[in-house]
Design a protein around this nucleic acid. Sequence first.
DNA 1: CTTGCACTCAAACAGATGTTTGATACAGTT
DNA 2: AACTGTATCAAACATCTGTTTGAGTGCAAG
Lengths: 221, 221
Amino acid sequence: MTDNSNRALDTKQTLLEAGAVCFARSGYAGVGVREICEAAGTNPAAVNYHFGGKSEFYREVMQYAFDCSSPPPPEMSELDDQPEEQLRLFIRWFVDRMLREKGNNVVRDLLGHELREPTGALDLLIDNSMRPICDLLEGILAALLEVDPKAEKVRLCTISVLGQCLMYKQNGPVLERLHAPHGYGPESIDTVAEQIFCFSLAGLQAVKAMTAAQTAEEVRS
Amino acid sequence: MTDNSNRALDTKQTLLEAGAVCFARSGYAGVGVREICEAAGTNPAAVNYHFGGKSEFYREVMQYAFDCSSPPPPEMSELDDQPEEQLRLFIRWFVDRMLREKGNNVVRDLLGHELREPTGALDLLIDNSMRPICDLLEGILAALLEVDPKAEKVRLCTISVLGQCLMYKQNGPVLERLHAPHGYGPESIDTVAEQIFCFSLAGLQAVKAMTAAQTAEEVRS
DNA sequence: CTTGCACTCAAACAGATGTTTGATACAGTT
DNA sequence: AACTGTATCAAACATCTGTTTGAGTGCAAG
């Protein structure tokens, strides 16, 4: 039975990997079971036998892709009193995730599709993948702004920082055409990360000052 | 003949509008001709008769949706010597485009799909819709940075500014779940625009200083 | 009234879709 | 060696896909 289930696990694995690539490329409706199975070298019936149908298969692909390709954020417990360096590290790590061409692109593309054609798997990805990252960044920004992590300013600044990073991949095709022949690939990681860090650090200080001014104004009135 | 072609124009129009809504919701592969025609109240053959096929129809829907719902950027010819105010106006206009719930959401969603499942209509939208906006912003940023509009710093800062704005809609569903129960709708336009303006203006000044420092360093060496 | 034309529609088309079926191959058990 | 249960496969399934067809509609010009 061991050898038998090994075979089964192999085809299941192959199917999941091929499915992740195909779904990431073309979305749920954009690719057929036959195409995926051909890429995996299996029979079209395999996906139904092992997963029970295309939709259940898709859900499992999402979970699998996320479980596999999610390198943890950098360890920064030793920088508790240096939020600026924490921010630099975080941005460097996140931009690297965006611009480096590796397997985690699959997760990002899957999520991109999910944003436009919600199939219900979105909440799963948010809780498992995005929430910890967001919490981490919000902690850093709260320290820099010297306010509570739940403050609205922190939320807005989180969006400002992440928005800059995400832009490079979410709108990659547009940027390539818009700024042709210049592109943004793995070789641009350092430049882009430094740009976003400098830009954001100054922006944060401005927002912090703005908050202080507003607070003072409120107190005065 | 006049009444005849009026009928034709009506069904064509209805078809384009229904197509825009359907394609925006489910993408090119996610919706069928029959479904669109049912929503438009026409025969499935109508789309082939009037447009020649699903793909040509899709292309025309893109062009139509864009032509209809694209309020022009604000007039700022009288602010040639006030790039800061130009930037504030631009961000306010762009954020409004992002957060106001109107027909132009269709364009944004269509473009979102096109980013993940390129069908060739992307270049059309870029040339017609995004290039002018991008050029406008690059002009403003070049004035603020006091460098040539084609400089790399200008490109990077353009991405930083647009990335912040686009984040609110491109990742709207994620933000809603991540920051629940807080959301970002039309009532947040002022807050968000002010946040992005302050954040970006400071960021730009930092990048400008950085450029100057680097240039000075290069000259010194 | 008749002719011509543009338009609409129900029906049918070939192909692709997700899924099911029954036969077959294989490994482990008795 | 015969049995058992799982995994695989080619083939067929019903359905849905985009598209075509041909008959039928209403309107304007001859």
